[in-house]
Computed example of a mutant assay.
Amino acid sequence: MTQAPQDDPRTLVSTDWLARHLKDPDLRILDASWYLPDAGRNGRAEYEACHIPGARFFDIDEMSDQRSSLPHMAPPNEKFISRMRAMGVGDGHQVVVYDGAGMFSAPRVWWTFRLMGKLDIAVLDGGLPKWLAEGRETEDMPPVLRDRHITVSRQNHLVRDVTQVAHAAKLGQAQVVDARGAARFAGEAPEPRPGLRAGHIPGALNLPFGQLLKHDGTMKDIPGLKAAFEAAGVDLARPVITSCGSGVTAAILALALERIGHRNWSLYDGSWAEWGMYEDLPVEAGPARVTQV
């Protein structure tokens, strides 16, 4: 079976690829629909009404470190193992994750699996909107779940905390690339979470995640992704720390970096929800210093 050039079961697969593999016994599909607090949408309710056949619902907020006051921080290994086993997702499975916005929250789950050392996971390019637009099969019943053993090996180099980010930004050891929209980055638009300062991490570059997508919501091809990073002032020969509002869309940047073969990246899990909360951390305001595409 030939696969389209863009299909890579470790990063991104097309709806055609998923349709061909839908009945594979070792395929597991996850619906990771999640929305910003001001979006007025409920990912779980949408899943219960309509999802790709066989999909399990991955609750980003529940599948998090509940000991933290920050939103949906990466879960401890034990919690990830427990939840995945209960969902029937384990060793030897090829996982495909999608969301109801097209390309928004699913990459966060891709990153979470990568953090746990699980490589056989891909994001569905275009997500549920593209699947529905093509008239493909859906259902409203949850699948029958059977416990499956899963092992993890946490990859700590893929995540950064506030101390590491502050250090790297101050010393110029890595480029912080912010996936938020230009107005939020510049401090000209309010944050969706109350109580946060406006602006960005000093020295950060701005690459709104939408600039990595085509008009139909699918991800740009590899030359297009490289061009977007370079237009934002990112030196692809140097390390990158991705950031955003709360660590969700930062994963879209991480996925794109992985797609273009840039392996020296990590994700700032707390992102602006953490940095913008602490008064003793410096904040920069004003538009990005590089012309956007």
Rank of each mutant, 00 (worst) to 15 (best):
T2R: 12
P5L: 04
P5S: 13
D7W: 01
T11K: 08
A19P: 03
K23R: 14
L27S: 11
Y35T: 11
L36C: 10
D38N: 15
A39L: 07
A39T: 12
R41A: 15
R41Y: 05
G43R: 00
A45T: 10
A49G: 14
D59A: 14
I60E: 00
D61W: 04
Q66D: 09
H72N: 06
M73R: 14
P76T: 11
K79P: 04
F80D: 00
S82G: 10
G92F: 00
W111M: 00
W111I: 01
T112E: 01
R114M: 09
G117A: 02
K118C: 13
V123N: 01
L124Q: 01
L132P: 10
A133I: 01
T138Y: 11
T138A: 11
D140P: 04
M141Y: 09
R154S: 14
R154C: 09
N156T: 12
H157T: 09
A166M: 11
A169V: 04
A174G: 04
A174Y: 11
Q175H: 10
A182K: 01
G187M: 06
E188F: 12
E191F: 03
P194N: 11
A198Q: 14
I201W: 08
A204K: 13
L212E: 05
L213D: 00
K214R: 15
H215R: 15
G217A: 04
G217V: 06
K220H: 11
K220G: 05
P223T: 03
L225R: 01
A227Q: 04
A228R: 00
V234S: 04
A237F: 03
C244E: 05
S246E: 14
S246P: 13
V248S: 00
I252M: 03
L253V: 01
A254D: 10
A254R: 05
R263H: 13
N264K: 15
S266V: 07
D269P: 00
S271G: 07
W272Q: 02
W272S: 06
A273C: 14
E274F: 09
E274M: 08
M277P: 02
D280N: 14
V283A: 07
G286F: 03
G286E: 03
P287R: 03
P287W: 04
A288L: 05
R289Q: 12
T291I: 08
